Amino acid sequence: MKHLSTLSATALLSLSLAGGAIAADLKPEEQIETRQAGYQFMSWNMGKIKASLSGDYNQETVQKAAEAIAGIANSGMGALYGPGTDKDVNGVKTRVKPELFTEQAEVGKVAGDFVAAANNMAEVAATGDEAEVKQAFGALGESCKACHKQFRKDD
């Protein structure tokens, strides 16, 4: 498990650096749209997991959805929070609070917790144990809520 955490941290750093170079080529409104698309895709996959846990449990569906979430969590999306993306740009709206750009230590903690929860969810989903998946899914949801509570404006 520790090896996987080290591997995940190394992969996250590599993807963040590569993602930073790609994100630098995007206009601020494109960065906002791209990160929103990533979060929407994760939300859709969270919905698939929730539906499976609420109905007929399908391990394959849960595993694929969890792997998709972990993939995005480890993709370096932090690079999509570049200068000028802290506010609406050219008609593209964002719900990011200004604190996301000023409270870097807390952002790093919340982001790290989310990546760890996403990676754990993918690992647990691969085992197929529904009870463990429910617990991991709850932890993943809590990590999402922690960021929303601190760094996302209400509608």
Rank of each mutant, 00 (worst) to 15 (best):
A136G: 08
I22A: 15
V133T: 14
D154K: 13
A117N: 08
A23C: 11
S75Q: 08
G19F: 05
L17H: 05
G128D: 03
L26H: 04
R35D: 05
A18F: 05
Q31A: 06
S5K: 12
K64N: 12
Q104L: 13
G82D: 06
E132A: 15
K153R: 08
S43A: 15
Q150K: 11
E130G: 05
T94K: 06
G141L: 02
M42F: 03
K149L: 10
I69N: 08
D25S: 11
S143H: 03
F151K: 07
T6F: 01
A23G: 11
P28D: 09
A111E: 06
W44L: 14
N74D: 11
T10W: 05
K153I: 01
A131I: 03
G76S: 05
Q104I: 12
E123T: 14
A9W: 00
K153S: 06
E132D: 15
S75M: 08
G108Q: 09
D88S: 12
L140P: 02
N58A: 12
G141D: 03
A131P: 00
G128V: 06
T10V: 13
T102C: 00
G84M: 02
M77R: 04
L26N: 07
N119E: 10
L26E: 02
R152C: 03
Q150I: 01
Y81C: 09
D154A: 15
A11N: 04
A118S: 14
N45G: 07
F137M: 12
V89C: 05
A79K: 10
W44F: 13
D88K: 08
P83Q: 13
A79C: 11
Y57H: 11
V133I: 15
M42Y: 02
S14E: 09
K93N: 08
G76I: 04
A68G: 06
D129K: 13
M1T: 10
L4V: 09
Q104H: 12
T94R: 07
F101K: 15
T6R: 08
S16M: 07
A126W: 00
F114H: 15
Q135V: 07
F114D: 05
M121G: 05
K64M: 11
S8R: 13
P98G: 06
D56Y: 01
L80G: 09
E132N: 13
K134L: 02
V110F: 00
A51L: 13
A126R: 10
K134Q: 14
S75G: 14
V110S: 00
V92T: 15
K97M: 04
E67H: 07
L12G: 15
K109D: 11
